[in-house]
Design a protein around this nucleic acid. Structure first.
Lengths: 340, 340
DNA sequence: ACCGTGTGGGCGAACGTTCGCTCACAGTCG
DNA sequence: CGACTGTGAGCGAACGTTCGCCCACACGGT
């Protein structure tokens, strides 16, 4: 457990009887103007001594750390975790490590996280935290810093975005409910000040209007993305509009709270109230009843964000349009119908 | 978005009219043998130029990166996510950044992750991936490397551990079920080859024997920690021992699958089968019915691991005994009784 | 014998810091 | 008035690499 003294390339070179720069060439560099035997000797020495290249020193001269920064939210939200894990794995596949920072609840420490990342000279940043949407300072820091891809809008704009079409999501979910014959369709939405929420609400209203149903504000409940918040919002909604027969919920995590509130209120799902949600987190099918939901390609979002970021780092132009991945309705039982 | 050219301390020094070493002293060092006015001038210059210290260079000379490595499992398991997020936040509170690697399913890339961390010269490593328990190579690398704290046993031993008392967990859950009058108590366990599983199973048997009930192997089902695996295991158990009236499940994530399988089999919870699980992940109370579970202090585990790791890095002796945090039964509805 | 041309390897410089020593200068004391 | 002390700042070296230029040597052709 003793603090390991790392062996440097100089020691390797010494035991192989060459200059350390030559050793560097064969061990890490590509410009191999070295005879095969010398190279073999160096490699053998490195092997024997257990040489581990010091990427810190390398980064210093190359001015690039092969490290990405990832800002994630507090992450009791499984959906975000999914995207960020996928992002990390994708980055590693491309030889990059990932430095993470998880926002404290509220997201007030965003700027300090970004500064940490900058000081460590990450080559680029992925912002996977909805809370950042309200953080001006982070937006500025990120824009000033360097390549950044975000998974949600960042104040001030100008940062490339990878995500999904939220308006479609809201529309698809609502249309499905309409198709099943529902008319009093409520929605348990995320925080109104978030774009995701507003887009999904637009999709919801689009579908309603298209079916000739006038949206009713009383059927819209705001919640804070947590199961607890959603449960409370659902309870209030139920009291306000007991005639509601279907609910579009803005995330699977919130759907858990909704289901729980419905259960407590004695409303059966789907018989009493039909539920469609969004995300399709891995255990959505294990809820009771199995959740019908509009699948958002979370893992793919993470990967695509990394791909894009890496291209930007390589010098490719940044896209001017957000990259929106398609969503897809997954029908299970909570909506009460296999009508697709 | 252009690759930002960072301003170095030399530029700051130049505009302040001092040597860069002096600037270094006031900006980052502690040894301030500098007049107040000079210092002010330097700080002002740094401010104006937007100086961001380059920790890469600093790390090189100080031979310490103020960065920790975190190896996490694939992380659809909320419990692990909880611990690792808490660990990251604790690390940051102490001025350390965290480099993460998420194991691929199966955990075969553990060694490559560790190597990435070592090459980046992390000051210490936290292993928060149960899959590592079967990875010899990772054990060796970690032991050879430097300070490491693990949240589960690592092959070869010798690495300090922070966790909870799994045997207690199994005992407490089972005792509660016994106290409610159950006798045919089954268990949906994790993978048998994991220590956690064996310890919890021991606790389960302890409780049974203490109550004069002889453990029945047919009542023990193995699952792979996923909801899907647990659902399948439950189904099989139900067919094998339809007389079972209570189930101790080895994790809340698996409990979701268990609940789902029970629901499908038409067994009501808790009326038909009582369920107690372990972990108490944040949404355990939003399952249907709300889950009774033995709370494992996951976040605290992550924090304590970081505390310990930091102390080890500072040179404190490594503890010879695992640090086991106490667990606590949380009674909700799935067990069918408020008897404590 | 001379010049060119490869080939194999050495070597200085640079990356941006920290660390500790040196040094100039002014003030204080005997 | 000289020696000592303390203060403020400079400066060389080092951390472990990569990068590109330089050099020695051997070989082939004229």
């Amino acid at each position: 457990m003793a603090q390991r003294r790392y062996v440097s390339i100089k020691e390797v070179a010494a035991t192989a009887g060459v200059s350390f720069q030559t050793a560097s060439k064969v061990l890490n560099g590509g410009d191999v103007r070295v005879s095969a035997e010398t190279a073999a000797r160096i490699v053998a020495a490195a092997e024997r001594l257990g040489y581990q290249p010091n990427t810190i020193a390398r980064s210093l001269v190359q001015r690039s750390t092969a490290t990405l920064g990832l800002i994630a939210s507090d992450a009791t939200d499984v959906a975000i975790t999914l995207a960020s894990v996928a992002a990390e794995q994708a980055a590693r596949r491309h030889g990059h490590a990932v430095l993470v920072g998880h926002l404290a609840p509220g997201g007030g420490d965003g700027a300090s996280i970004v500064r940490t990342l900058i000081e460590r000279r990450v080559d680029g940043v992925i912002a996977a935290a909805p809370d950042l949407e309200e953080n001006e300072e982070v937006g500025e820091l990120l824009r000033a810093h360097g390549p950044t891809v975000s998974l949600q809008s960042i104040p001030g704009g100008g940062l490339p975005l990878v995500g999904s079409n939220h308006r479609d999501t809201g529309r698809i979910a609502t249309e499905h409910l309409i198709g099943l014959g529902h008319e009093a369709i409520g929605t348990v939405a995320g925080l109104f000040r978030r774009r995701v929420t507003r887009s999904r609400l637009h999709g919801y209203e689009d579908a309603l209007r298209q079916a000739g149903i006038e949206p009713d504000e009383g059927l819209v409940a705001e919640a804070d993305w947590t199961p607890a918040g959603a449960a409370a919002a659902t309870k209030a909604l139920l009291e306000r509009r007991p005639e509601v027969t279907a609910l579009f919920v803005h995330s699977d995590m919130m759907a858990m709270g909704v289901l729980s509130a419905l259960y407590e209120a004695g409303r059966r799902v789907p018989a009493g109230v039909a539920v469609v949600s969004c995300d399709d987190i891995p255990f959505a099918q294990f809820l009771a009843p199995p959740l019908s939901t509009v699948r958002v390609p979370l893992a793919e979002t993470g990967q695509r964000a990394v791909d894009l970021l890496l291209r930007m780092i390589a010098g490719d132009p940044v896209p001017d349009k957000p990259l929106l991945l398609p969503v897809e309705l997954i029908v299970r039982e909570s909506c009460g119908g296999r009508v697709t």
